[in-house]
Design a protein around this nucleic acid. Structure first.
Lengths: 236, 236
DNA sequence: GTAATAGTGTCTTTAAGACATTATGGA
DNA sequence: TCCATAATGTCTTAAAGACACTATTAC
């Protein structure tokens, strides 16, 4: 039991972890075991400990709830959600984060989650009516929506797309990241011109091309040191 | 006294309110009356009440601490600062906000602040060494730095610059906003081409031009409905 | 060979960069 | 008339859009 002389808040983190699975942008959700919202799907997350900051809490919860260890990806703060009634149990603010990872193994559920799995983002957010998409707990539908906007925007002016592919990767693979996130692939030639013309976006790997399924072998690359793309890649 | 069964946090908001005064980008600070950091300068802010969200708290604190009433400006969330030791008194997370306003009257200090006044941003953040700039309380120097980055970036791809001028305004006035925020004025002709070529950025006002100091009278405009500038205005 | 995928080249169009020039007001 | 500021015009350059074309592999 804790006591304070100021209005006490519970502070949580929630993480929208995105990946590309079979060309489809997907987000990791856990099925809630207990009330409230038992049986509903929610973003992985939990309470911030007294001695850690929000980012550390996000990494920890991701590992605890989903078995996802610190991966070769990127995690950043999204924004904080603070509506007074967002959690029926108590006054809670959630510091939401977005994370990006190459395709990961099917996650294992952690202790306090009934199940954890990847969901196609398209199946979660309602464009197209009458679909039976799962109910998301709390304000997590809003968070996923905002996180998706962040991902889409960041692909334009950063090299973040490369965080979605495992090294080494091919340019067609990288292009499929844009296709998955934006819904439509960028023009092939213009895409190559932009990526290869952006210093430090990708660096070529010496050695043979990727395995193919009946076409020319694609050249291999790794992520380069660049973080921004200027001028931005346009979504036209 | 409050009691909880979860790690209790104090949740605060801090607001970096920017304006342009005499062509200089300035931010509003309050002098702290009590410990910790008594006598140091801090961003206006305070505790979030149990029944309001962070944005409401930001507006309320701005009014309470500085006498700034809800102005014809813009306020948005910046990010949340959660280092465990950021406040020596207790575990606190601060949901920082950025706000933009046209030149406002010199603020009056509120109850719990000794004084409130505008500071030139250049005098606060240390480029150029050995200046005697004021010590900022808590992690507020980091917050001001991040807020400044946000403002600079948003001028590129939004119509936000127009929030810094009182209506009606002239294009030279608007251009001086960019000059103040970016440190160097955009090219005159190219700036006009961009602003007037962006549908809904500004709308002309019928009637005489602005008073002048010995030159041609500038035409008057009001803010238009557009919120984004695409492609962005470049900082070159 | 064909189908499939990877990669290159090029012409057009858009919009910014870098100015020179003209317009309008006050002293 | 001269100065100061506002406004317009124009030539150059950068980079995206929209393609057509060539290359390499499996079958």
């Amino acid at each position: 039991m804790y006591t304070t002389k100021y209005p006490p808040f519970a502070v949580t983190v929630d993480i929208a972890l995105f990946t590309i699975r079979d060309g489809v942008l997907s987000v990791l959700l856990v099925e809630r075991g207990g009330e409230p919202y038992a049986g509903a799907w929610a973003l992985p997350g939990g309470f911030v400990d007294p001695d850690e900051d929000a980012e550390a809490a996000a990494w920890r919860e991701l590992a605890e709830e989903t078995g996802v260890e610190q991966f070769s990806g990127h995690l950043e703060q999204l924004r904080t959600y603070s509506a007074p009634d967002r959690d029926p149990r108590m006054r809670t603010v959630s510091i939401a984060h977005v994370a990006f990872a190459p395709d990961l193994p099917e996650p294992a559920a952690g202790d306090d989650a009934a199940d954890a799995r990847w969901w196609a983002v398209e199946d979660l957010l309602g464009h197209g009516l009458g679909e039976d998409r799962p109910a998301l707990a709390f304000d997590h539908e809003e968070i996923v929506h905002d996180a998706l906007e962040r991902v889409r925007a960041k692909l334009e002016y950063t090299t973040l797309a490369a965080e979605f592919v495992a090294e080494p990767f091919t340019l067609p693979e990288l292009r499929r990241v844009y296709a998955a996130v934006w819904g439509t692939p960028p023009d092939l030639g213009n895409f190559r011109r932009k990526v290869l013309g952006t210093d430090g976006f990708v660096v070529p790997v010496r050695g043979g091309g990727a395995a193919s399924t009946g076409g020319r072998r694609a050249a291999l690359y790794r992520r380069g040191p660049a973080t921004t793309v200027s001028p931005p890649m346009s979504r036209s």
